[in-house]
Design a protein around this nucleic acid. Sequence first.
DNA 1: TTTCAATATGTTTTTAAAAGAATATTGATA
DNA 2: TATCAATATTCTTTTAAAAACATATTGAAA
Lengths: 115, 115
Amino acid sequence: MSIKKKYNIRFRIWFYANEDKFLGKGRVELLERIKETGSITNAAKGMKMSYRQAWQMVNEMNESAPKIVVEKSLGGKGGGGATVTKAGEKAIQQFHEFENKVAQFIADESKKLKI
Amino acid sequence: MSIKKKYNIRFRIWFYANEDKFLGKGRVELLERIKETGSITNAAKGMKMSYRQAWQMVNEMNESAPKIVVEKSLGGKGGGGATVTKAGEKAIQQFHEFENKVAQFIADESKKLKI
DNA sequence: TTTCAATATGTTTTTAAAAGAATATTGATA
DNA sequence: TATCAATATTCTTTTAAAAACATATTGAAA
């Protein structure tokens, strides 16, 4: 039988803009769902999140980010909707890239541990 | 004027033993204070933590860790006390080492980001 | 055998966060 | 100009986590 590791290591990363939390795992998922569905309402329905919370997250992101990440439209055909901006898509991509790099690093370093 | 970075990246790591959270930043601090003060009571007083919570953390750690990290003694001179075991000290050290490595990696990778 | 300070554990209260409910607003379009 | 679905916003309720409180237990030492 193989040697069983005592510990495994988990992590989370966050993007901050100045001192404001800007992006984490949950917010990235929300952005991705907004991109897919075209609205905050439907994005929130897909995850365990109330519209209220999703809307607040979007607002906080837009306020803290250097550029708006979600463009919202109000009224009109379909009642309105929300789309992820280029800046938003870039942020999503950067987050995933960074997270993957850290995951790889941690996996590699974990192997070196004699615990 | 220098270019101002849009984002800075923060992180947290946790040691897991099987599927149980074993060690994080807060628990490491608790262990260090137990080591300094020789008791859960005084360790808890030093941070914003109730004795009850500190005691529970210690128990969870001891239950999930492969080896006990805090040795408790009950009654007797001084009422008893708590000491960090060799395994506990090693865990503290490993945690700091790993955290520092990840911090260094993230700092380096952050520099490469054009955001 | 009483004292004492710390561990051990149960119960209640407070607090903060999330959820939920309710309602108003918007604007294209039919 | 009435409709409609989504955004926007306020208010209330629930829930979960933390804190606070209370009390029992332990065992060396005086």
